[in-house]
């Protein structure tokens, strides 16, 4: 099995506080990995270090065996690592289609072709496909700012998958989404994993969401990996029950 992402001994300290304290894990091609843990366990910091938003104090991140530690977010994205954010992050003044074209346009061609070439960078068809896949077809030309919260979440996820990334990191995709929409989102994520073999990592508070979506789960506590395994194994792990699931 090929490893898409390999994180080795990652540390991140803010002053004296060690938010991430020696985390190692890897992500295999085609899997959905869940990362859970109590608030303040370092999940988001870990994400931000992997994605180049923060500089790790120590440790390395490899993508397909190549060192990518400390690359800028935009470079990492063009190498195939994509993400969503905890808080909504769509471009409200652009239409749904424009949002998706934007998500793909920097991955092909050059600055010159993006200047002289077609306005949609040849991505309209692909964007519409993606929109249909995420069931936003009726909203293609609507401004993203006018969409409902759940629809924006779907759009956000669609943008992360637009350029056919090697790896997608989803930061609390279920947060604030109502139940119906949550079902839709989970179903779409599963489908994209099954149909296109997309690999992704999900950080989530919603246990049911993680346990039913992911094939493997890592539990973080106090900046360290506390346990990992299949959802069933993690559920049965006494240390995990103690630290997180217990109450």
């Amino acid at each position: 099995m090929t490893q898409v992402l390999e994180v080795t001994n990652l540390h991140k300290a803010f002053g004296g506080i060690k938010a991430v304290n020696g985390v190692s894990f890897s992500v295999n091609e085609g899997e959905i990995l869940g990362i859970i843990g109590p608030n303040g366990c370092g999940k988001s910091t870990l994400f931000n270090c992997i994605l180049g938003q923060l500089e790790p104090t120590e440790g390395s991140v490899k993508l397909d065996g190549k060192e990518v530690t400390n690359k800028r977010p935009s470079e990492l994205n063009r190498l195939g690592v994509s993400r969503t954010f905890q808080l909504l992050q769509v471009f409200p003044e652009l239409t749904v289609r424009e949002n998706l074209i934007l998500a793909g346009q920097e991955h092909e061609g050059t600055m010159l072709s993006r200047f002289f070439g077609p306005r949609d960078a040849g991505l309209s068809a692909k964007a519409d496909q993606m929109i249909a896949f995420f069931k936003l077809g009726h909203l293609v030309d609507a401004k993203a700012g006018g969409l409902s919260y759940g629809q924006q979440k779907l759009l956000d996820a669609a943008m992360a998958f637009m350029a056919g990334p090697r790896l997608v990191l989803l930061d609390e995709p279920a947060g604030g989404v109502n139940l119906t929409m949550l079902g839709d989102l989970k179903e779409r994520l599963r489908a994209i994993n099954a149909e296109q073999g997309a690999t992704f990592v999900v950080i989530e508070h919603n246990m049911d969401f993680v346990m039913s979506l992911c094939s493997r789960v890592i539990v973080l506590a106090e900046g360290k990996v506390l346990a990992q395994g299949t959802p069933a194994e993690v559920r049965a792990n006494p240390a995990v029950i103690d630290a997180y699931l217990g109450h």
């Binding site: 994509s82 992050q89 471009f91 652009l94 934007l102 920097e106 993006r114 350029a163």
Partner: peptide, 23 residues
């Protein structure tokens, strides 16, 4: 052109734009 789209994106939300590969 796509440049204009990128300009708009980086004005509206530079962090998100960077995470989508916009330099």
């Amino acid at each position: 052109s796509p440049w204009g789209r990128a300009f708009t994106a980086l004005r509206e939300n530079p962090i998100r734009a960077a995470s989508l590969g916009v330099d």
